[in-house]
Design a protein around this nucleic acid. Sequence first.
DNA 1: AAGCGCGTTACGATAGGCGTAACTTGAAAC
DNA 2: GTTTCAAGTTACGCCTATCGTAACGCGCTT
Lengths: 254, 254
Amino acid sequence: MDKRQPSKSDIVQSVDVCIDVLLNVAKNPDIRLTEVAQNLGETKPRILRMLRTLERRGLVRKSDTGTYRLGTTAIILGTAASTQVDLVRIANPILEEVGQKANETTQLRIIDNGESLCIAKFEPMRDLRVQAMIGRRRPLTAGSYKVLLAYLHPQVQLQMIPETLPRLTKRTITDRGKLVAELDKIRRQGFCVSYGEVSEQLVSVSVPVLAFDGSVIAAVNVGAPAFRTQKSDVDRFIVLLKEASSKISARLGW
Amino acid sequence: MDKRQPSKSDIVQSVDVCIDVLLNVAKNPDIRLTEVAQNLGETKPRILRMLRTLERRGLVRKSDTGTYRLGTTAIILGTAASTQVDLVRIANPILEEVGQKANETTQLRIIDNGESLCIAKFEPMRDLRVQAMIGRRRPLTAGSYKVLLAYLHPQVQLQMIPETLPRLTKRTITDRGKLVAELDKIRRQGFCVSYGEVSEQLVSVSVPVLAFDGSVIAAVNVGAPAFRTQKSDVDRFIVLLKEASSKISARLGW
DNA sequence: AAGCGCGTTACGATAGGCGTAACTTGAAAC
DNA sequence: GTTTCAAGTTACGCCTATCGTAACGCGCTT
């Protein structure tokens, strides 16, 4: 009998698994029982019981073909959450304002579990635009989301940088030394611009949202197609984002 | 040893309770452990374990003062859900369109657990407007949400009408007989207008969204302050909502 | 300093929930 | 048409995850 994780006990395993189920359905709409069970390495009866419970409460919905999707209760939870998470509630209108002015997609990203996580976004009404998605994760080491790393304590920073850096495009930095140097530069200049590090043909500009003590709360970001983005646009984005960042900081109480 | 519910077993109780906890936090931001436990009639250790589990997964967040709110994972779930629930995904842009044209608040409501439940909404940019909220429940028997009742089978209908009808304003219908007659009228004319039945000074217009077989899926609704709503406006709303309703029906595949 | 109520921990008892195995159903294979 | 396979489901006895009791620490109020 292995001792599981010695770190923190006192969690309810069945609840933990049910969260896995929920997230699995969220990621894979119209997933089937068997598939969920496989993904999680659990038995079918167990997952069936979980799904049934979740279904009874409207968190998931079973289609007549036997596939599962999230349900209306999940929508309700989510809407409630966006009004309860201060950062998101405050950032949303500001993201929209920046997005309107820049006429490009904006995002709010935080560090979560060693990755950057999009928790709010705005997309302008425009045929061609960068697609953002709440819940999408990206490595911390590529693109302008590096700002999230730049303000961490050097030791924590190194701890978050994996041995081998994932290469997304040919411009992605894959040398740890170079990355650390880049982070240093970012910290000095207060923003980060990335040209095609995450996706080819995409420019991404990020500015950190800092707490009173200088620790990073989040990053605000503008993403745009490279072909229509001049140096002057980038400069404008930086100014907009810096304003937005301090507005958010202020509204959070600093 | 009482046999619990003989109806449907095979649900995981701890998961069921954890959903209660989640919904409780959703309804009462900054709630404390003790309060949740009281609300649910559970012991504190049990709820503590649940909250801890939920916290580890980012579904709730514990503030430094010890109060709980929903967390970022809930936002992610919710956003995913809105793209997965067909009805909501399809209705959203249509609700916006109607809302823009009417320049008033619009809602999409379904029957859930004997009540009407708001699952999508649009509010126009306007200083004074009706406030709508996703997740808010209203009785089926008052206001224009009666349309949701009007198309049910008479027996199911009667089953859903409680003995005593809740009185929200002096205009609320509280007589069962009168209500049934009203429902009949609604079914014949295909829409329902309510003047101050739910809130004084509010006009509400609803049109059913019907499936191919004539069963009710949902209701689309415009809500407006009475003082600025003429008969002609109401007529306009009805036309807009009827268009919207058939557009939604069509897009759902009928 | 005593009292209260909150969050938390410890632990032993128990029934909740687990997995195995078997059954049903429906669709694909041949 | 029969066989085969896999998915979904049910049944049930065992076991451990999870529960509640009781006790503790802590901060605030009286």
